[in-house]
Computed example of a mutant assay.
Amino acid sequence: MAAQKGLSIGDVAARTGLSVSAIRFYEGRGLVHPERSSGGQRVFLRSDIRRLSFIMIAQQIGLTIEEISDLFASLPERRTPTKADWSRISGAFRRMLDERIALMERTRDRLDGCIGCGCLSLKKCQLYNPEDRARGLGTGPRFVLDNVSQVRAD
């Protein structure tokens, strides 16, 4: 019967492993949209388990609530998302993942050498970033953030 009538917040908490307060927080941020019973209790769709599970995964890989909200913007609020709905956001999510993976790989591969931050404290910096030429690319670790391997000589 619960599948027809919906799930209580306690049922959703038990299924997802989230605390009731976390589910209320996500509701407050507009990421889930439970209905209300005649007694005022929250009633969740089974598809809200998927939404909350997606949120948990996205947060584990470092997405912010705002980024998750942007991804969810194209999902229907008051009906179960279809496969096509989920496919639409999965493409955007995949691009975000690919960008993060590439950044992590660059960080792993370049962290012990010159990262283009302008400190010039390693001998290798003098080879890849002589006279702090990377500052022309912007602030911060340009060789990692911008995927630049070295600054070309003028």
Rank of each mutant, 00 (worst) to 15 (best):
M1V: 13
M1D: 15
A2S: 05
K5P: 01
A13Q: 10
A14N: 11
T16C: 00
G17P: 06
L18N: 02
S21Y: 07
A22C: 04
A22H: 03
R29S: 02
R29F: 04
G30D: 00
G30C: 01
H33A: 09
H33S: 12
E35F: 01
R36F: 12
R36Q: 10
S38A: 13
G39W: 08
Q41L: 08
R42P: 01
F44L: 11
L45N: 07
S47K: 05
I49W: 01
I49K: 03
R50M: 11
L52P: 04
F54N: 08
I55C: 08
M56N: 06
I57Q: 11
Q59S: 10
Q60P: 00
I61M: 12
I61H: 01
T64I: 05
T64E: 13
I65N: 02
E67V: 07
I68D: 06
S69L: 07
S69G: 14
D70W: 11
A73Y: 06
A73I: 05
A73C: 06
A73V: 03
S74K: 12
R78Q: 15
R78P: 02
R78A: 13
K83E: 12
A84I: 11
D85H: 11
S90R: 13
G91Y: 13
G91A: 15
F93M: 14
R94Q: 04
R94K: 05
L103E: 09
L103Q: 08
M104D: 03
T107K: 14
T107A: 12
R110C: 08
R110P: 06
C114V: 11
I115M: 05
I115S: 00
C117P: 00
C117L: 10
G118C: 10
K124Q: 13
Q126T: 10
L127H: 06
Y128G: 00
G136Y: 06
L137I: 15
T139N: 07
T139W: 05
G140I: 02
R142V: 15
R142S: 08
V144C: 03
D146R: 15
D146I: 10
V151M: 11
R152S: 10
A153G: 10
D154N: 02
D154K: 05
